[in-house]
Computed example of a mutant assay.
Amino acid sequence: MKKIRVSVPVATIWTSPESVRSIDAQAIADQPDMVAWLKTMTREETIALCGEKRLQSQVLFGDEILIDEVKGPWAKICVPTQYSTKDKRGYPGWMPLGQSVESEMATDCQQIKVQSNVATFYDLQKQPIFDLSFGTFLPLLEESEDEVKVDSPIGPGFMYKKDILMPVQQHLHTGFEIVKNAEKFIDLPYLWSGMSAYGYDCSGFSFSMLRAGGYLIPRDADDQALQGEEITLQSALPGDLLFFAYEKGKGYVHHVGIYYGDGKMIHSPTPGKIVSITVLKGSKYEEELCAIRRYWKG
């Protein structure tokens, strides 16, 4: 059955077509260049993505989208894998129509998962097409000693086994395994609405680490804080999600981190910062802590 799927490594979801600035041209191209886009922006321009609420989310290669409306080169969409109270069908926003394709990608196969921070996807002639982000899932077609043949929205291709996890290697992660994946991104610059190895926002980081571990949770921090198993701070274990609210924990939930153990959390803090490990005691987060939720099993 044909579905509309993302045909680029990372598609950025915008608040509206008018949200795009001239400096964002490389992000909205039919073949976006995330590295060049992020490198081109100044620190102030990167922070403005948040301050001016230009972005909503991102979605990875092969993920399904639903299109509600087409306006020129733009599509109003929602993302079924990203639960949100903004739209019960999935996270809403606008993305370039050219970054998606109608696809009959196999759905009855087991999936590989990209485990390296980024991994090259090759065509059938073994020529590199582009790099895929950690947490990308694709159907497995065949395997050999060092590589796999996978299906994709743009047709079959090859990847090296060193960059992926085979279906037999995948399982529901423990909290420690969630933290171990999170550690791979220490020092990665924050990106508002980011959902890839090129940059995460706070809830994009928790969503992506949990999804890589086999758990599909809501996209935004305030929605994440309402689900999962409620945990006390005394009972918190690595891999639990910590939520923080304005007004000393009584207001709107504005941040989420992953409990690291020993009174610390690993998180993507805020625009202009990097993924880091923070001691809770004595920090602003200590008085803003409002909820702890456990999604992982085992």
Rank of each mutant, 00 (worst) to 15 (best):
S84N: 12
D30L: 09
S193L: 13
P238R: 00
Y295N: 08
C50T: 01
L141V: 03
I277Q: 04
H173P: 01
I274C: 08
F205Y: 06
G214V: 07
L242F: 15
S103I: 01
S144G: 13
I178A: 04
I47W: 02
K184M: 14
C50Y: 09
F244E: 02
L210E: 09
R294F: 00
P218S: 08
K250C: 03
I28Y: 00
M166R: 04
I4D: 13
W192V: 03
Q127P: 09
L241G: 00
P32A: 09
K273C: 13
A36T: 13
G62Q: 12
M95C: 04
D146P: 01
I129T: 09
R219P: 14
S116L: 13
M34L: 02
M1P: 11
S16K: 00
V70P: 13
M195K: 12
I67K: 12
E102T: 06
T40R: 15
F130T: 06
R293D: 08
M209V: 06
C290S: 14
Q58I: 05
P73W: 05
G194C: 05
V20A: 00
D68N: 02
M166F: 05
G298E: 15
S193F: 15
Y259N: 04
M265H: 04
K71Y: 12
Y285I: 01
W94S: 04
G261V: 00
H173E: 15
A245Y: 07
T107M: 08
R294M: 13
T120F: 03
A11P: 05
G155C: 08
D30A: 15
A225E: 10
E177C: 01
A225H: 02
G62I: 08
H267E: 03
M1D: 01
A29R: 11
W192Y: 12
V79G: 07
C109R: 15
D201F: 06
Q110F: 13
I266K: 03
P271R: 11
P269L: 11
D146K: 06
V20F: 02
S276D: 00
E229L: 07
K76Q: 10
Y260R: 09
K184S: 05
E142R: 06
E69Q: 05
K284R: 03
Y83T: 07
Q227A: 08
Y198N: 14
A197M: 09
L140V: 00
G90Q: 00
D151P: 00
I28W: 06
Y200L: 08
M159D: 06
S268W: 13
K86A: 07
D24G: 04
E229V: 15
